[in-house]
Design a protein around this nucleic acid. Structure first.
Lengths: 232, 232
DNA sequence: TGCGCTAAAATCGTATACAAAGTCGTGAAC
DNA sequence: GTTCACGACTTTGTATACGATTTTAGCGCA
Protein backbone atom coordinates (compact mmCIF):
# COMPACT_ATOMS: atom_id res chain seq x y z
CA UNK A 1 0.00 0.00 0.00
CA UNK A 2 1.81 3.14 1.06
CA UNK A 3 3.72 4.65 -1.77
CA UNK A 4 1.75 5.14 -4.90
CA UNK A 5 3.30 1.94 -5.95
CA UNK A 6 5.60 2.69 -8.80
CA UNK A 7 8.64 3.77 -6.87
CA UNK A 8 10.19 0.97 -4.93
CA UNK A 9 13.82 1.91 -5.32
CA UNK A 10 13.11 5.58 -4.79
CA UNK A 11 14.68 7.32 -1.88
CA UNK A 12 12.37 10.27 -2.33
CA UNK A 13 9.68 8.87 -0.12
CA UNK A 14 8.60 11.02 2.73
CA UNK A 15 9.91 10.04 6.13
CA UNK A 16 6.58 8.85 7.40
CA UNK A 17 6.06 6.60 4.37
CA UNK A 18 9.44 5.01 4.91
CA UNK A 19 8.75 4.35 8.58
CA UNK A 20 5.28 3.04 7.82
CA UNK A 21 6.54 0.66 5.20
CA UNK A 22 9.31 -0.62 7.41
CA UNK A 23 6.89 -1.24 10.24
CA UNK A 24 4.40 -2.86 7.89
CA UNK A 25 7.00 -5.29 6.59
CA UNK A 26 8.08 -6.07 10.12
CA UNK A 27 4.48 -6.90 10.91
CA UNK A 28 4.08 -8.98 7.76
CA UNK A 29 7.14 -10.99 8.63
CA UNK A 30 5.92 -11.51 12.18
CA UNK A 31 8.86 -9.71 13.72
CA UNK A 32 6.30 -7.52 15.42
CA UNK A 33 3.65 -9.51 17.20
CA UNK A 34 0.00 -8.63 17.67
CA UNK A 35 -0.56 -6.55 20.77
CA UNK A 36 2.95 -5.18 20.91
CA UNK A 37 3.14 -1.56 21.94
CA UNK A 38 4.63 0.91 19.49
CA UNK A 39 5.80 3.81 21.60
CA UNK A 40 6.20 6.98 19.63
CA UNK A 41 9.45 7.93 21.33
CA UNK A 42 10.90 4.47 20.93
CA UNK A 43 10.02 4.13 17.24
CA UNK A 44 11.28 7.64 16.59
CA UNK A 45 14.54 6.79 18.29
CA UNK A 46 14.99 3.67 16.16
CA UNK A 47 14.43 5.40 12.86
CA UNK A 48 16.07 8.65 13.84
CA UNK A 49 13.02 10.80 13.27
CA UNK A 50 10.81 12.91 15.48
CA UNK A 51 7.50 11.89 16.93
CA UNK A 52 5.76 13.97 14.28
CA UNK A 53 6.65 11.60 11.47
CA UNK A 54 6.20 8.54 13.65
CA UNK A 55 2.66 9.66 14.41
CA UNK A 56 1.93 10.07 10.71
CA UNK A 57 3.26 6.58 10.02
CA UNK A 58 1.24 5.07 12.85
CA UNK A 59 -1.91 6.80 11.65
CA UNK A 60 -1.36 5.39 8.20
CA UNK A 61 -0.94 1.89 9.56
CA UNK A 62 -3.98 2.37 11.77
CA UNK A 63 -6.00 3.17 8.71
CA UNK A 64 -4.97 -0.17 7.24
CA UNK A 65 -5.93 -1.83 10.51
CA UNK A 66 -2.40 -3.03 11.08
CA UNK A 67 -2.12 -1.06 14.27
CA UNK A 68 -4.75 0.08 16.70
CA UNK A 69 -4.65 3.59 18.12
CA UNK A 70 -6.05 4.00 21.60
CA UNK A 71 -6.78 7.54 22.55
CA UNK A 72 -4.22 8.97 24.96
CA UNK A 73 -2.77 5.50 25.34
CA UNK A 74 -0.76 4.92 22.24
CA UNK A 75 -0.39 2.57 19.29
CA UNK A 76 -0.37 -1.21 19.38
CA UNK A 77 0.04 -3.85 16.72
CA UNK A 78 -3.52 -4.90 15.97
CA UNK A 79 -5.03 -8.06 17.34
CA UNK A 80 -7.80 -9.00 14.93
CA UNK A 81 -10.71 -10.69 16.62
CA UNK A 82 -12.12 -13.96 15.38
CA UNK A 83 -15.03 -12.09 13.82
CA UNK A 84 -12.68 -9.71 12.06
CA UNK A 85 -10.67 -12.66 10.79
CA UNK A 86 -13.77 -14.17 9.22
CA UNK A 87 -14.71 -10.80 7.74
CA UNK A 88 -11.30 -10.37 6.17
CA UNK A 89 -11.51 -13.71 4.43
CA UNK A 90 -15.09 -13.07 3.42
CA UNK A 91 -13.95 -9.84 1.77
CA UNK A 92 -11.07 -11.60 0.08
CA UNK A 93 -13.41 -14.27 -1.28
CA UNK A 94 -15.53 -11.52 -2.77
CA UNK A 95 -12.63 -9.74 -4.41
CA UNK A 96 -9.90 -12.16 -5.32
CA UNK A 97 -11.50 -15.01 -7.30
CA UNK A 98 -13.08 -12.78 -9.88
CA UNK A 99 -9.97 -10.62 -9.98
CA UNK A 100 -7.95 -13.75 -10.67
CA UNK A 101 -10.32 -14.51 -13.51
CA UNK A 102 -9.75 -11.09 -15.01
CA UNK A 103 -6.02 -11.50 -14.55
CA UNK A 104 -6.07 -14.81 -16.40
CA UNK A 105 -7.74 -13.14 -19.34
CA UNK A 106 -5.16 -10.35 -19.49
CA UNK A 107 -1.93 -11.92 -18.35
CA UNK A 108 1.06 -11.43 -20.63
CA UNK A 109 4.16 -13.63 -20.70
CA UNK A 110 5.99 -10.91 -18.78
CA UNK A 111 3.33 -11.01 -16.07
CA UNK A 112 3.72 -14.74 -15.74
CA UNK A 113 7.47 -14.36 -15.46
CA UNK A 114 7.11 -11.84 -12.67
CA UNK A 115 4.73 -14.11 -10.83
CA UNK A 116 7.09 -17.02 -11.26
CA UNK A 117 9.87 -14.96 -9.76
CA UNK A 118 7.68 -14.26 -6.77
CA UNK A 119 7.02 -17.94 -6.32
CA UNK A 120 10.68 -18.82 -6.67
CA UNK A 121 11.64 -16.25 -4.05
CA UNK A 122 8.91 -17.58 -1.83
CA UNK A 123 10.19 -21.13 -2.18
CA UNK A 124 13.73 -19.97 -1.52
CA UNK A 125 12.72 -18.15 1.64
CA UNK A 126 10.78 -21.16 2.81
CA UNK A 127 13.72 -23.43 2.14
CA UNK A 128 15.98 -21.07 4.01
CA UNK A 129 13.67 -21.34 7.00
CA UNK A 130 12.61 -17.71 6.77
CA UNK A 131 8.90 -18.35 7.05
CA UNK A 132 8.23 -14.69 7.82
CA UNK A 133 9.66 -13.55 4.54
CA UNK A 134 7.94 -16.39 2.73
CA UNK A 135 4.63 -15.23 4.09
CA UNK A 136 5.36 -11.69 3.00
CA UNK A 137 6.17 -12.82 -0.53
CA UNK A 138 3.15 -15.07 -0.61
CA UNK A 139 1.01 -12.04 0.10
CA UNK A 140 2.66 -10.01 -2.62
CA UNK A 141 1.74 -12.77 -5.05
CA UNK A 142 -1.93 -12.11 -4.41
CA UNK A 143 -1.53 -8.38 -4.85
CA UNK A 144 0.41 -8.90 -8.05
CA UNK A 145 -2.53 -10.78 -9.53
CA UNK A 146 -4.77 -7.79 -8.96
CA UNK A 147 -2.18 -5.62 -10.65
CA UNK A 148 -2.15 -7.94 -13.64
CA UNK A 149 -5.93 -7.59 -13.78
CA UNK A 150 -5.22 -3.86 -14.13
CA UNK A 151 -7.42 -3.07 -11.16
CA UNK A 152 -5.41 -0.83 -8.87
CA UNK A 153 -8.34 0.09 -6.68
CA UNK A 154 -9.09 -3.55 -5.97
CA UNK A 155 -5.37 -4.22 -5.65
CA UNK A 156 -5.15 -1.73 -2.81
CA UNK A 157 -7.98 -3.40 -0.97
CA UNK A 158 -6.40 -6.79 -1.47
CA UNK A 159 -3.07 -5.45 -0.26
CA UNK A 160 -4.71 -4.30 2.94
CA UNK A 161 -6.55 -7.58 3.38
CA UNK A 162 -3.38 -9.55 2.79
CA UNK A 163 -1.60 -7.51 5.44
CA UNK A 164 -4.36 -8.15 7.88
CA UNK A 165 -4.34 -11.81 6.95
CA UNK A 166 -0.71 -11.94 7.97
CA UNK A 167 -1.72 -10.67 11.38
CA UNK A 168 -4.56 -13.17 11.52
CA UNK A 169 -2.21 -15.99 10.64
CA UNK A 170 0.14 -14.89 13.40
CA UNK A 171 -2.72 -15.19 15.86
CA UNK A 172 -4.71 -18.18 14.65
CA UNK A 173 -2.48 -20.39 12.54
CA UNK A 174 -2.66 -23.97 13.65
CA UNK A 175 -0.88 -26.10 11.04
CA UNK A 176 2.86 -26.07 10.91
CA UNK A 177 2.92 -26.97 7.26
CA UNK A 178 3.15 -23.90 5.06
CA UNK A 179 3.42 -26.03 1.94
CA UNK A 180 -0.17 -25.75 0.82
CA UNK A 181 0.57 -22.18 -0.18
CA UNK A 182 3.13 -23.11 -2.73
CA UNK A 183 1.08 -25.74 -4.46
CA UNK A 184 -1.95 -23.51 -4.67
CA UNK A 185 0.13 -20.73 -6.14
CA UNK A 186 1.73 -23.10 -8.62
CA UNK A 187 -1.65 -24.26 -9.84
CA UNK A 188 -2.85 -20.68 -10.06
CA UNK A 189 0.05 -19.55 -12.14
CA UNK A 190 -0.54 -22.41 -14.56
CA UNK A 191 -4.16 -21.42 -14.99
CA UNK A 192 -3.14 -17.81 -15.56
CA UNK A 193 -0.52 -18.84 -18.09
CA UNK A 194 -3.07 -20.67 -20.22
CA UNK A 195 -5.63 -17.86 -19.82
CA UNK A 196 -8.10 -20.17 -18.15
CA UNK A 197 -10.21 -17.64 -16.28
CA UNK A 198 -12.72 -20.10 -14.93
CA UNK A 199 -10.00 -22.29 -13.48
CA UNK A 200 -8.18 -19.35 -11.97
CA UNK A 201 -11.35 -18.14 -10.30
CA UNK A 202 -12.09 -21.59 -8.96
CA UNK A 203 -8.53 -22.16 -7.76
CA UNK A 204 -8.42 -18.82 -5.98
CA UNK A 205 -11.72 -19.42 -4.27
CA UNK A 206 -10.54 -22.80 -3.12
CA UNK A 207 -7.18 -21.46 -2.04
CA UNK A 208 -8.79 -18.85 0.17
CA UNK A 209 -11.17 -21.39 1.67
CA UNK A 210 -8.20 -23.62 2.38
CA UNK A 211 -6.41 -20.78 4.13
CA UNK A 212 -9.47 -20.01 6.21
CA UNK A 213 -10.01 -23.59 7.27
CA UNK A 214 -6.37 -23.91 8.23
CA UNK A 215 -6.98 -21.38 10.96
CA UNK A 216 -8.19 -22.15 14.43
CA UNK A 217 -10.75 -19.47 14.97
CA UNK A 218 -11.69 -20.38 18.49
CA UNK A 219 -8.54 -19.42 20.35
CA UNK A 220 -7.29 -16.11 21.66
CA UNK A 221 -4.17 -13.94 21.83
CA UNK A 222 -0.43 -14.50 21.82
CA UNK A 223 2.65 -12.97 23.40
CA UNK A 224 4.37 -9.62 22.97
CA UNK A 225 8.14 -9.26 23.06
CA UNK A 226 10.87 -6.65 22.80
CA UNK A 227 10.70 -3.89 20.23
CA UNK A 228 14.24 -2.95 19.21
CA UNK A 229 15.13 -6.55 18.56
CA UNK A 230 12.32 -7.02 16.10
CA UNK A 231 13.15 -3.91 14.13
CA UNK A 232 16.88 -4.45 13.76
CA UNK B 1 -7.59 31.39 21.35
CA UNK B 2 -7.78 27.73 20.53
CA UNK B 3 -10.89 27.20 22.56
CA UNK B 4 -10.04 23.67 23.42
CA UNK B 5 -13.51 22.78 24.31
CA UNK B 6 -16.29 24.12 22.20
CA UNK B 7 -18.26 20.92 22.25
CA UNK B 8 -20.85 20.26 19.68
CA UNK B 9 -22.50 17.11 20.84
CA UNK B 10 -19.90 14.37 20.57
CA UNK B 11 -16.56 15.67 21.65
CA UNK B 12 -15.25 12.13 22.00
CA UNK B 13 -13.67 12.35 18.61
CA UNK B 14 -10.19 13.57 18.26
CA UNK B 15 -9.80 16.93 16.61
CA UNK B 16 -8.43 15.50 13.40
CA UNK B 17 -11.32 13.06 13.06
CA UNK B 18 -13.81 15.89 13.43
CA UNK B 19 -12.09 17.97 10.76
CA UNK B 20 -11.75 14.98 8.45
CA UNK B 21 -15.40 14.10 8.76
CA UNK B 22 -16.51 17.65 8.17
CA UNK B 23 -14.37 17.91 5.08
CA UNK B 24 -15.54 14.51 3.85
CA UNK B 25 -19.20 15.51 4.13
CA UNK B 26 -18.47 18.74 2.34
CA UNK B 27 -16.95 16.73 -0.48
CA UNK B 28 -19.86 14.28 -0.52
CA UNK B 29 -22.29 17.11 -0.82
CA UNK B 30 -20.30 18.70 -3.61
CA UNK B 31 -19.65 21.86 -1.66
CA UNK B 32 -15.97 21.21 -2.28
CA UNK B 33 -15.23 20.56 -5.93
CA UNK B 34 -12.59 18.25 -7.38
CA UNK B 35 -9.27 19.99 -7.78
CA UNK B 36 -9.93 22.60 -5.13
CA UNK B 37 -6.92 23.39 -2.99
CA UNK B 38 -7.08 22.70 0.73
CA UNK B 39 -4.48 24.95 2.32
CA UNK B 40 -3.40 23.77 5.72
CA UNK B 41 -3.38 27.25 7.18
CA UNK B 42 -6.76 28.07 5.73
CA UNK B 43 -8.45 24.88 6.94
CA UNK B 44 -6.87 25.28 10.34
CA UNK B 45 -8.17 28.82 10.58
CA UNK B 46 -11.69 27.70 9.71
CA UNK B 47 -11.85 24.96 12.32
CA UNK B 48 -9.79 26.77 14.93
CA UNK B 49 -7.09 24.15 15.12
CA UNK B 50 -3.40 24.07 14.34
CA UNK B 51 -1.83 22.74 11.20
CA UNK B 52 -0.84 19.61 13.11
CA UNK B 53 -4.39 18.33 13.33
CA UNK B 54 -5.28 19.58 9.85
CA UNK B 55 -2.42 17.55 8.44
CA UNK B 56 -3.65 14.45 10.21
CA UNK B 57 -7.13 15.00 8.81
CA UNK B 58 -5.83 15.54 5.29
CA UNK B 59 -3.70 12.43 5.50
CA UNK B 60 -6.74 10.44 6.53
CA UNK B 61 -8.75 11.77 3.59
CA UNK B 62 -5.83 11.10 1.28
CA UNK B 63 -5.84 7.49 2.34
CA UNK B 64 -9.48 7.28 1.30
CA UNK B 65 -8.53 8.90 -2.00
CA UNK B 66 -10.79 11.84 -1.36
CA UNK B 67 -7.88 14.24 -1.45
CA UNK B 68 -4.57 14.02 -3.20
CA UNK B 69 -1.40 15.05 -1.43
CA UNK B 70 1.33 16.48 -3.59
CA UNK B 71 4.69 16.60 -1.96
CA UNK B 72 5.70 20.11 -0.95
CA UNK B 73 2.72 21.43 -2.83
CA UNK B 74 -0.25 20.73 -0.62
CA UNK B 75 -3.59 18.95 -0.57
CA UNK B 76 -6.26 19.06 -3.26
CA UNK B 77 -9.69 17.53 -3.55
CA UNK B 78 -9.12 14.45 -5.69
CA UNK B 79 -9.96 14.35 -9.38
CA UNK B 80 -10.55 10.68 -10.19
CA UNK B 81 -9.51 9.75 -13.70
CA UNK B 82 -11.81 7.90 -16.07
CA UNK B 83 -9.87 4.73 -15.43
CA UNK B 84 -10.17 5.18 -11.69
CA UNK B 85 -13.89 5.77 -12.08
CA UNK B 86 -14.29 2.46 -13.88
CA UNK B 87 -12.19 0.71 -11.27
CA UNK B 88 -14.29 2.07 -8.44
CA UNK B 89 -17.48 0.76 -9.98
CA UNK B 90 -15.81 -2.52 -10.82
CA UNK B 91 -14.86 -2.89 -7.16
CA UNK B 92 -18.38 -1.98 -6.07
CA UNK B 93 -19.86 -4.55 -8.40
CA UNK B 94 -17.62 -7.16 -6.81
CA UNK B 95 -18.55 -6.23 -3.26
CA UNK B 96 -22.07 -4.88 -3.10
CA UNK B 97 -24.34 -7.37 -4.88
CA UNK B 98 -23.30 -10.33 -2.79
CA UNK B 99 -23.27 -8.19 0.32
CA UNK B 100 -26.85 -7.18 -0.47
CA UNK B 101 -27.69 -10.84 -0.76
CA UNK B 102 -26.27 -11.51 2.70
CA UNK B 103 -28.10 -8.49 4.05
CA UNK B 104 -31.40 -9.78 2.67
CA UNK B 105 -30.88 -13.05 4.49
CA UNK B 106 -30.17 -11.34 7.81
CA UNK B 107 -32.29 -8.20 7.77
CA UNK B 108 -34.51 -7.64 10.80
CA UNK B 109 -37.62 -5.45 10.86
CA UNK B 110 -35.56 -2.81 12.69
CA UNK B 111 -33.00 -2.85 9.91
CA UNK B 112 -35.72 -2.31 7.34
CA UNK B 113 -37.09 0.59 9.35
CA UNK B 114 -33.69 2.25 9.48
CA UNK B 115 -33.25 1.82 5.75
CA UNK B 116 -36.69 3.26 5.14
CA UNK B 117 -35.77 6.29 7.21
CA UNK B 118 -32.71 6.77 5.06
CA UNK B 119 -34.82 6.65 1.93
CA UNK B 120 -37.37 9.05 3.32
CA UNK B 121 -34.68 11.53 4.25
CA UNK B 122 -33.17 11.13 0.81
CA UNK B 123 -36.52 11.84 -0.84
CA UNK B 124 -37.06 14.82 1.41
CA UNK B 125 -33.68 16.28 0.55
CA UNK B 126 -34.31 15.73 -3.12
CA UNK B 127 -37.69 17.38 -2.87
CA UNK B 128 -36.13 20.29 -1.05
CA UNK B 129 -33.71 20.71 -3.91
CA UNK B 130 -30.71 19.78 -1.80
CA UNK B 131 -29.24 17.32 -4.25
CA UNK B 132 -25.91 17.33 -2.46
CA UNK B 133 -27.44 16.07 0.76
CA UNK B 134 -29.57 13.59 -1.18
CA UNK B 135 -26.46 12.15 -2.73
CA UNK B 136 -24.82 11.88 0.66
CA UNK B 137 -27.81 10.02 2.09
CA UNK B 138 -28.02 7.80 -0.96
CA UNK B 139 -24.47 6.74 -0.28
CA UNK B 140 -25.17 6.01 3.35
CA UNK B 141 -27.92 3.69 2.21
CA UNK B 142 -25.37 1.48 0.49
CA UNK B 143 -23.11 1.42 3.51
CA UNK B 144 -26.01 0.61 5.78
CA UNK B 145 -26.73 -2.52 3.74
CA UNK B 146 -23.22 -3.76 4.41
CA UNK B 147 -23.74 -3.08 8.10
CA UNK B 148 -26.93 -5.13 8.01
CA UNK B 149 -24.96 -7.93 6.42
CA UNK B 150 -22.79 -7.73 9.55
CA UNK B 151 -19.66 -7.26 7.46
CA UNK B 152 -17.87 -4.25 8.86
CA UNK B 153 -14.70 -4.84 6.91
CA UNK B 154 -16.59 -4.84 3.64
CA UNK B 155 -18.69 -1.95 4.88
CA UNK B 156 -15.58 0.17 5.27
CA UNK B 157 -14.49 -0.57 1.73
CA UNK B 158 -17.93 0.26 0.44
CA UNK B 159 -17.97 3.49 2.43
CA UNK B 160 -14.74 4.51 0.77
CA UNK B 161 -15.97 3.53 -2.68
CA UNK B 162 -19.20 5.42 -2.15
CA UNK B 163 -17.26 8.51 -1.17
CA UNK B 164 -15.15 8.24 -4.27
CA UNK B 165 -18.26 7.66 -6.33
CA UNK B 166 -19.58 10.98 -5.11
CA UNK B 167 -16.45 12.60 -6.48
CA UNK B 168 -16.81 10.68 -9.72
CA UNK B 169 -20.41 11.80 -10.06
CA UNK B 170 -19.34 15.37 -9.54
CA UNK B 171 -16.96 15.02 -12.45
CA UNK B 172 -18.76 12.78 -14.91
CA UNK B 173 -22.49 12.95 -14.26
CA UNK B 174 -24.40 13.58 -17.46
CA UNK B 175 -28.09 13.06 -16.71
CA UNK B 176 -29.94 15.68 -14.81
CA UNK B 177 -32.47 13.19 -13.50
CA UNK B 178 -31.50 11.83 -10.12
CA UNK B 179 -34.69 9.82 -9.88
CA UNK B 180 -33.29 6.43 -10.82
CA UNK B 181 -31.65 6.31 -7.45
CA UNK B 182 -34.84 6.43 -5.51
CA UNK B 183 -36.65 3.74 -7.46
CA UNK B 184 -33.70 1.40 -7.33
CA UNK B 185 -33.44 1.86 -3.59
CA UNK B 186 -37.16 1.31 -3.16
CA UNK B 187 -37.00 -1.96 -5.04
CA UNK B 188 -33.95 -3.01 -3.05
CA UNK B 189 -35.58 -2.38 0.29
CA UNK B 190 -38.56 -4.46 -0.76
CA UNK B 191 -36.33 -7.38 -1.69
CA UNK B 192 -34.53 -7.07 1.64
CA UNK B 193 -37.81 -6.94 3.53
CA UNK B 194 -38.98 -10.24 2.08
CA UNK B 195 -35.55 -11.82 2.52
CA UNK B 196 -35.17 -12.41 -1.17
CA UNK B 197 -31.42 -12.66 -1.44
CA UNK B 198 -31.29 -13.50 -5.11
CA UNK B 199 -33.44 -10.53 -6.01
CA UNK B 200 -31.43 -8.19 -3.81
CA UNK B 201 -28.20 -9.32 -5.43
CA UNK B 202 -29.64 -8.88 -8.89
CA UNK B 203 -31.15 -5.49 -8.11
CA UNK B 204 -27.91 -4.20 -6.64
CA UNK B 205 -25.90 -5.40 -9.59
CA UNK B 206 -28.30 -3.72 -11.94
CA UNK B 207 -28.40 -0.56 -9.86
CA UNK B 208 -24.64 -0.22 -10.01
CA UNK B 209 -24.57 -0.85 -13.73
CA UNK B 210 -27.23 1.79 -14.14
CA UNK B 211 -25.17 4.26 -12.17
CA UNK B 212 -22.09 3.50 -14.24
CA UNK B 213 -23.88 3.89 -17.55
CA UNK B 214 -25.35 7.19 -16.41
CA UNK B 215 -21.82 8.59 -16.39
CA UNK B 216 -20.03 10.05 -19.35
CA UNK B 217 -16.67 8.35 -19.15
CA UNK B 218 -15.25 9.45 -22.44
CA UNK B 219 -14.26 12.99 -21.56
CA UNK B 220 -11.22 13.95 -19.66
CA UNK B 221 -11.43 15.36 -16.16
CA UNK B 222 -14.04 18.06 -16.36
CA UNK B 223 -13.88 21.78 -15.91
CA UNK B 224 -10.71 23.01 -14.25
CA UNK B 225 -11.49 25.25 -11.35
CA UNK B 226 -8.94 27.86 -12.23
CA UNK B 227 -7.40 29.04 -15.44
CA UNK B 228 -3.88 28.20 -14.39
CA UNK B 229 -4.77 24.57 -13.96
CA UNK B 230 -6.25 24.47 -17.41
CA UNK B 231 -3.04 25.77 -18.90
CA UNK B 232 -0.78 23.80 -16.68
C1' DT C 1 6.94 43.17 -25.91
C1' DG C 2 8.53 38.83 -24.47
C1' DC C 3 11.68 35.82 -22.11
C1' DG C 4 14.65 34.41 -18.38
C1' DC C 5 16.74 35.19 -14.01
C1' DT C 6 16.71 36.45 -9.14
C1' DA C 7 14.72 37.56 -4.86
C1' DA C 8 10.75 37.71 -1.84
C1' DA C 9 6.60 35.65 -0.17
C1' DA C 10 3.94 31.83 0.76
C1' DT C 11 3.44 26.97 1.89
C1' DC C 12 4.92 22.59 3.24
C1' DG C 13 7.97 19.05 6.15
C1' DT C 14 9.93 18.20 10.39
C1' DA C 15 11.50 19.19 15.04
C1' DT C 16 10.72 20.88 19.48
C1' DA C 17 7.91 22.67 23.46
C1' DC C 18 4.27 22.56 26.48
C1' DA C 19 -0.17 20.92 28.40
C1' DA C 20 -3.36 17.15 29.32
C1' DA C 21 -4.26 12.45 30.15
C1' DG C 22 -2.76 8.11 31.65
C1' DT C 23 0.27 4.80 34.34
C1' DC C 24 2.47 3.11 38.19
C1' DG C 25 4.34 2.90 42.73
C1' DT C 26 4.09 4.08 47.56
C1' DG C 27 1.79 4.42 51.81
C1' DA C 28 -1.87 4.74 55.02
C1' DA C 29 -6.29 2.99 56.61
C1' DC C 30 -9.15 -0.85 57.47
C1' DG D 1 -2.77 -8.67 54.16
C1' DT D 2 -5.74 -6.19 51.08
C1' DT D 3 -7.61 -2.01 49.21
C1' DC D 4 -7.97 2.58 48.14
C1' DA D 5 -6.00 7.08 47.40
C1' DC D 6 -2.62 10.33 46.19
C1' DG D 7 1.47 12.00 43.85
C1' DA D 8 5.49 11.53 40.74
C1' DC D 9 6.66 9.86 36.32
C1' DT D 10 5.60 8.64 31.61
C1' DT D 11 3.25 9.08 27.22
C1' DT D 12 0.25 11.17 24.21
C1' DG D 13 -2.30 15.48 21.94
C1' DT D 14 -1.71 19.88 20.16
C1' DA D 15 0.58 24.20 19.30
C1' DT D 16 4.41 26.69 17.77
C1' DA D 17 9.03 27.37 15.58
C1' DC D 18 12.24 26.90 12.00
C1' DG D 19 14.41 25.19 7.77
C1' DA D 20 13.37 23.55 2.96
C1' DT D 21 10.87 23.73 -1.22
C1' DT D 22 7.81 25.85 -4.28
C1' DT D 23 5.44 29.68 -6.16
C1' DT D 24 5.15 34.32 -7.53
C1' DA D 25 6.47 38.89 -8.55
C1' DG D 26 9.83 42.13 -10.15
C1' DC D 27 13.52 43.42 -12.90
C1' DG D 28 16.87 43.45 -16.57
C1' DC D 29 18.02 42.27 -21.15
C1' DA D 30 17.49 40.80 -25.87
Amino acid sequence: MQGQGHDLGEQRESGSARVAQSLAIAIHEHRLSPGMKLSEDEVGEIYGVSRTVVRAALQELAHDRLVELKRNRGAFVAQPSVKEAREVFEARSLLEPRTAKSAAERATPEDIKILQKHIDAEHAALHAGDTGRALHLSGKFHVEIARIADQFTVAEFIAQLVSRSSLIIALYWQRRTALCESHAHDALIKALARHDGAAAEELMQHHLLDLLTSLDLRDQPSVPKSLKEALN
